[in-house]
Design a protein around this nucleic acid. Structure first.
Lengths: 182, 182
DNA sequence: TTCTCCATGTAATACGTTACATGATTGT
DNA sequence: ACAATCATGTAACGTATTACATGGAGAA
């Protein structure tokens, strides 16, 4: 089942946002465990409006041209969000082409594997920088996250996962270079 | 882009398999980073046959009734697999409803969060048992994995990831119970 | 002026799961 | 005899990405 609406509702609890802002928010803060595209967000906002879970405030200067629309959550929206919170989750899924390649690799692919591992290490180190930035940003809004104790915990899990991946790939690279992999 | 064919080709390098066996194999050994369903595998096997990347040996007793079909990789299939190995990967994606919920939770959701965390801990501990089983199974076929050095490494990463998630949820639960979460 | 980012939206397409249909084999 | 698992396949459905169309605002 599609979860787009719940992410949107969840984010709107802290104040109204435009569709664009919602997208950015998911991208910057949640990309380590969630993703949504414009093609899902905009239609879903209209569906939510239709269901009475959000209200829309259009920036109505000009006339016809499309302008900024801010969405706010309604009481019904909030209770729908809380209902979802108590529902059973579907299984987590991970799709990692890098791990797939490593898993399937033989000695014939040794050269490619080194490239894969380097790329993996690089990507995780970049993600760590992003996390650090976001983490710092968070602590500047102490009041807001007063109400969101778990964000830090999830973030800290993300960081530790990145560290795991990055150190794992690094150690594998080392052992491959030194030629004593097993 | 769809990757189903490469998983199939990758697995077939160690000997012919039926579609059913391929499915089981992915399920048991790769579920921590990859998944495929019958609805992808069977049509893809026919596509691969059509492209000359695999050959089919049907178990042709009886006549009309559908029977076991073993697939083997061809030289062209092998080179197609090796080509893919050198290609750039698409970004890894994770979809975790549990982390999404935790990320979005406030104090209002405290009760639900405890359930989520317990479920998360349980699932990761179960996965660890599966990993242990598979790991043991692997060491019994030393000859086969001689050629697949990286399987162990990927497995070990999977184990450490599960341990991370399980100990993270456990520690969060502890702190929630003791009431000193920040 | 041109580029980038903000901003909204739709349509086409691709991807993936689930349910269904069918039947053989193996173990209890 | 029955259930579980092995085994193959398709059709329907739902979900998600991508490309496209459109245009404003601010910066270089």
């Amino acid at each position: 089942m599609k979860k787009t609406r719940y992410v949107i509702l969840g984010l709107l609890r802290d104040g109204s946002l435009t569709g664009y802002e919602i997208k950015k928010c998911i991208e910057v803060r949640m990309s380590f465990f969630w993703q949504e595209s414009f093609g899902q967000i905009y239609p879903e906002l209209n569906a939510l409006l239709n269901d009475g879970f959000v209200t829309e405030t259009a920036d109505e200067r000009k006339d016809n041209s499309r302008r900024k629309k801010k969405y706010a959550i309604t009481a019904e929206g909030l209770s729908e969000f809380n209902r979802w919170m108590g529902e059973k989750n579907e299984k987590d899924t991970i799709r990692s082409e890098s791990l797939l390649k490593l898993f399937l690799a033989t000695d014939a692919n040794a050269r490619d594997i080194v490239d894969q591992l380097n790329e993996m290490k690089k990507q995780n180190e970049e993600k760590l920088l992003l996390f650090a930035f976001y983490s710092k940003q968070l602590s500047e809004y102490a009041d807001l996250h007063e109400n969101h104790k778990y964000i830090h915990e999830v973030l800290s899990l993300g960081i530790r996962q990145c560290e795991l991946y990055s150190s794992w790939s690094d150690s594998l690279l080392q052992r491959l270079k030194d030629g004593h992999l097993r």
